[in-house]
Write a protein that binds this DNA or RNA. Structure first.
Lengths: 196, 196
DNA sequence: CAACGAGACGGAACGTTGCTCCGCTTGGCA
DNA sequence: TGCCAAGCGGAGCAACGTTCCGTCTCGTTG
């Protein structure tokens, strides 16, 4: 499940250390290119930035989704862990849900094109889809259940649908000053409120 | 502005009748392929379906956006005209707005991938973007203003932002049974309601 | 009716991407 | 030091958008 987070501990998985060094180099290069050109940047560009051949990329990360997951894993983990923390810290479950959704939106809009790719039905991004869902859906479900349990929101909302809707609203939020995804998400969350 | 809607009248624009016939053939073929494979179907496929060369497509429709606009022009016009009609027919402006948004959503979700392309920042779809905005934004603005005037909704909502948000919510609405764009749009519209 | 030319046609060709495959290099062990 | 598997690089293939130009045909004119 994880093989790129080795601290200063013992041995690791990859036999050869040049391979592991390349993997790190690739992650750094990919992160830089993603910021500069978005997550759909040509693979060749990433390889060039890292100073390696394309074969090296595909060996370490068989699909682009694997690379994206590796680059953003830390942030996604943090997001997942923020859910229960917010639930404990906030006055009401609804407030926690709102705060968490805000974090989610912040994450998406600051990652060039990630939202678009995330909703893409393009086979090959299945891994990415699955990772986000596996990691975040339970958290979102927990928040929604809590808010529904306290009677603050209508209870027939599905966490998958909500996350997908929020993700959709974040598409193209950068490079369009006339569109503020955060406000639209706020409206959506406001619409969740139990009528009356 | 229009050169494909000639009824039984006099002469038309294109000198050669084979050219005009080909244009019609292309529109029919494109509509069929769009239904079958989505609006991002390979240009070669459309050319093959129409039985013409690719040069012919690019001569009649310099960009893909031009082709899409031509194919859906009638439906967009109908949507634009439905706005004032609904405003006149419905009991409240808010009801008219809701009904109109529903029509908009119906249009988007039944057109394979149109919503995605519509929000794409990809240069080359600018024409498409511009056409939809030119035609529908005034209508939406009118509906929003009416609803705001009657005090039913908070008045600080921008028509562009709303349409963009709705369009975003419709992305990928087909081929995902777990996601119902209509419900998400309902939530968004519900969120528009003036608090209390 | 025949010749002509403007305009339309078709598809080969080019550039850009994703992805694979294979000969070469090199790290690490004996 | 020598060996060899793991790792590497990039050439190569396929799919796609787009352009370009030689060919063909419609409609007119003599």
């Amino acid at each position: 499940m994880n093989d790129s987070d080795e601290g200063a501990g013992h041995a690791a998985q990859s036999k050869r250390k040049d391979a592991r060094r390349n993997k790190e180099t690739l992650l750094d290069a990919a992160a830089a290119v993603f910021v500069a050109s978005g997550v759909e940047a040509p693979v060749r560009d990433i390889a060039a930035k890292a100073g390696v051949g394309m074969g090296t990329i595909y060996r370490h990360f068989p699909t682009r989704a694997d690379l994206i997951v590796a680059v953003y894993r830390h942030q996604v983990e943090a997001l997942a862990e923020a859910g229960p923390a917010l639930l404990a810290a906030c006055a009401t479950p609804h407030a926690a849900l709102g705060r968490w959704i805000n974090l989610f939106v912040d994450f998406l809009v600051t990652k060039h094109g990630l939202a678009a790719v995330l909703q893409s039905d393009n086979a090959g991004f299945d891994t990415l889809h699955a990772y986000f869902l596996d990691r975040l859906l339970p958290v979102c479900t927990q928040l929604i259940d809590a808010a529904a349990g306290s009677g603050e929101i209508s209870s027939d909302v599905d966490a998958y649908e909500l996350m997908r809707g929020v993700g959709n609203l974040c598409i193209g939020a950068d490079h369009d000053p006339r569109y503020d995804a955060r406000r639209m998400v706020e409206l959506l969350i406001a619409g969740l409120r139990r009528p009356h």
